[in-house]
């Protein structure tokens, strides 16, 4: 698929429409805000979003005002994937089966409390899109550790740095053999847009994991959101890929980063000068982080090696 360019967006009045209305209560430089904006540009107004407790529940507005210009339903923390399931089946019986039904959950609502519902919906191959916007902690409640927080990351519940590693959720979902799994970063909005455009056309369970940096939680200046989102990809910590029917393709910058030597050194990213939350990262933790990053890439390698073998 040819990559959409920003000029194509400008040329098309439909994709120029802003669905996530400005003047909402997201923080300055919010990654979630960007993710909302670009996902909805791709999906259009006939989209129902189910959102469990998260930042997105709050930044979308206090009653009686709301920022999303599309049907949006708040949901209990653990119930999002199941509610989307019900919503899809309900809409089918009401003759609105063509609506995109989305779950829009944070990393806590996906990797922790919501994983049962997510796994259930994925196993049933429900016709929904599950989006996890990953800001690597419970940022809404003020930055507590989630299973998506990186090793060494300081949160209010891991003041000495997190001991364990980030949960590799895209691969867990891929193990459910669903039609589409993708990772995306707000550092590359066009790639994100394209992934939603593609996901929209696929039937069945689709999972998109968006890395959405959080200036107050990660402790970096608001204007650096894009740089942070780019750096996490450039270092190879968060590879961009999509898995369609079990076949993995690396996208964007990650294409070149399969070669370990082309990745930026981890020390540039996991650095207290870069992000305040990494103040506990020392040489030992950096080594462990390197090991963890390599582990993520080994998952990708497994796919690629098998695909190569099958081609031959």
């Amino acid at each position: 698929m040819a990559k959409t360019k920003i000029k194509d967006i400008i040329a098309n009045p439909e994709s120029r429409r802003e669905y996530f209305l400005p003047g909402n209560s997201t923080c300055q430089g919010c990654g979630l805000d960007m993710a909302f904006r670009w996902a909805m540009k791709a999906l259009g107004q006939n989209t129902v979003m189910i959102s469990p407790a998260s930042c997105s529940n709050v930044v979308t507005g206090l009653w009686p005002k709301s920022a999303p210009d599309w049907p949006y339903f708040n949901m209990a923390f653990a119930g999002a994937a199941a509610a989307a399931t019900g919503m899809k089946h309900g809409l089918v019986t009401k003759g609105k089966g063509d609506y995109n039904v989305l779950v829009w959950a944070g990393d806590g609502g996906t990797t922790d409390i919501g994983i049962q519902g997510l796994s259930g919906a994925a196993e049933r191959n429900e016709d929904i899109i599950y989006v996890c916007y990953d800001n690597e902690a419970y940022q809404n409640t003020g930055n507590q550790r989630s299973s998506s927080t990186p090793h060494g990351g300081v949160t209010t519940t891991t003041p000495y740095g997190k001991e364990r590693y980030k949960k590799n959720l895209p691969m867990i979902v891929a193990a459910h053999n669903v039609p589409y799994v993708a990772t995306a970063s707000v550092g590359d909005p066009m790639d994100l847009y394209d992934k939603f455009m593609k996901a929209k056309k696929i039937k069945g369970f689709r999972y998109i994991h968006i890395l959405a940096p959080c200036p107050p939680g990660w402790r970096y200046p608001a204007e650096e959101t894009i740089q942070q989102a780019k750096m996490i990809v450039d270092t190879g910590v968060f590879p961009l890929f999509e898995i369609e029917d079990g076949n993995l393709t690396l996208n964007g910058k990650s294409k070149r980063l399969h070669d370990k030597n082309k990745r930026k050194p981890l020390g540039e990213y996991f650095n207290k000068k870069n992000q305040g939350r990494f103040k506990m990262v020392d040489e030992k933790i950096l080594e462990e982080l390197q090991m963890d990053t390599d582990r993520w890439w080994k998952w990708i390698d497994r796919f690629l090696v098998i695909q190569d073998y099958e081609e031959k």
Partner: peptide
Amino acid sequence: HSVGAGLVGASYAGA
């Protein structure tokens, strides 16, 4: 829990 959430979702849709 998901049964309940599913009912809520479907009910929202008018079913």
